[in-house]
């Protein structure tokens, strides 16, 4: 009973925080909008600055939307993977989703495939990497621990795709293609428009729902495969659903934003600290916290200097010390 009350409270607070951050994000940037003007435009449609509607609807809104979706999706994906692998040190790219997507993007850039081509290619190879990891673990299954095998298969697949990315970089034209590949691998929300969001949003929603429906069973998996089976959970089925949906989340986000590290590791950790380990509360809490975090990171990225700082740089710079802090706090309690 206590945990239910706590979960609701945490979700409420996080929702308020996210709303505040969203409003704040509309106001900051190279062209700052006073909060009063923004709210008046949103509620009454009146404005004095003629740039305001375009700036809000065409430029800031898509960017804020994708930051919320990407931050939330990566965090939920991380939380689900951590639950499944019974390890709080796991991140969403454990099965090679990110490196796979990175390779797909690099390949598409090399062949000048255009923005849509890059996104589709990254999405497909990201999922392909996960599929290869699953297949490898299945082939050498025997009597080993399935979870351990999955981690090892993921490492192997990541290493392979990393090597391929290096190869792509090596043969890429150093004037035009190489910077593009490098910049893609560091993550950015710059190129995202409402058009991309139209495709990404349904995929994310469709992946979030099964994850949330299986949240209770994810709790049971904390005890390991055998005990979960003895408690009546069809572990093979649940594992497949979790891996499938979490990978879809990551792949669809990475395809449009590039690789944004750290979020999928620290946000679930932080959320578990405030919302508790029950995945029924942890998953939504991770979404809200991740959304707010990436939004803030993107605000920094686009307002600190005239040149946009890649997101991956900031998430790591901010994330690493924050992770230490969370670890220290959890250690105390």
């Amino acid at each position: 009973m206590m945990t239910v009350g706590r979960g609701k409270l945490v979700l409420g607070i996080l929702a308020i925080v996210l709303t505040v951050v969203v409003v704040f994000s509309f106001t900051v940037g190279r062209y700052s909008i006073p909060a009063g003007d923004l709210l008046r435009y949103l509620f009454t449609g009146e404005y004095t600055d003629e740039n305001l509607p375009i700036l809000i609807m065409q430029i800031r809104l898509p960017r804020i939307l994708i930051a919320v979706l990407a931050g939330g999706a990566l965090s939920v994906s991380g939380a689900a993977y951590q639950g499944l692998f019974r390890n709080p040190m796991v991140s969403p790219d454990i099965l090679g989703v990110s490196t796979g997507a990175g390779f797909g993007a690099a390949l598409a850039i090399l062949f000048s495939a255009g923005l849509l081509g890059i996104q589709l290619s990254a999405f497909a190879t990201g999922l392909l990497a996960v599929f290869i990891s699953l297949t490898i673990s299945k082939i050498i299954a025997m009597n080993h621990d399935r979870i351990l095998l999955l981690v090892l298969s993921g490492m192997i697949v990541s290493a392979m795709f990393n090597a391929l990315i290096m190869l792509m970089k090596y043969i890429a034209d150093s004037e035009s293609k190489l910077p593009e590949i490098t910049f893609w691998l560091m993550g950015s929300l710059t190129n995202v428009t409402l058009h991309e969001i139209k495709y990404v949003l349904p995929v994310i929603l469709l992946s979030l729902i099964p994850l949330w429906l299986n949240a209770w069973k994810l709790n049971i998996l904390s005890f390991g495969d055998e005990e979960a089976k003895a408690l009546g959970v069809n572990t093979g089925q649940v594992r497949l659903i979790i891996i499938g949906c979490a990978s879809l989340l990551t792949a669809s986000v990475v395809a449009v934003t590039g690789i944004i590290g750290w979020i999928g590791l620290i946000i679930p950790h932080f959320s578990r600290f405030i919302a508790g380990p029950d995945h029924r509360w942890l998953l939504p809490a991770s979404f809200l916290a991740g959304a707010a975090f990436l939004l803030l990171v993107d605000d920094i990225s686009r307002s600190v200097s005239t040149l946009e700082i890649p997101l991956g740089v900031i998430t790591s710079l901010v994330g690493a010390p924050m992770f230490l802090l969370v670890l220290k706090m959890t250690g105390k309690s």
Partner: peptide, 23 residues
């Protein structure tokens, strides 16, 4: 079915590790 079976037979295992702070 796994679920029906678990309603009849329960397991008290030997060693256990729990990675998350459940009560």
């Amino acid at each position: 079915r796994q679920r029906d079976y678990a309603r009849v037979i329960a397991y008290v295992p030997q060693a256990r590790t729990l990675p998350f702070p459940f009560t």
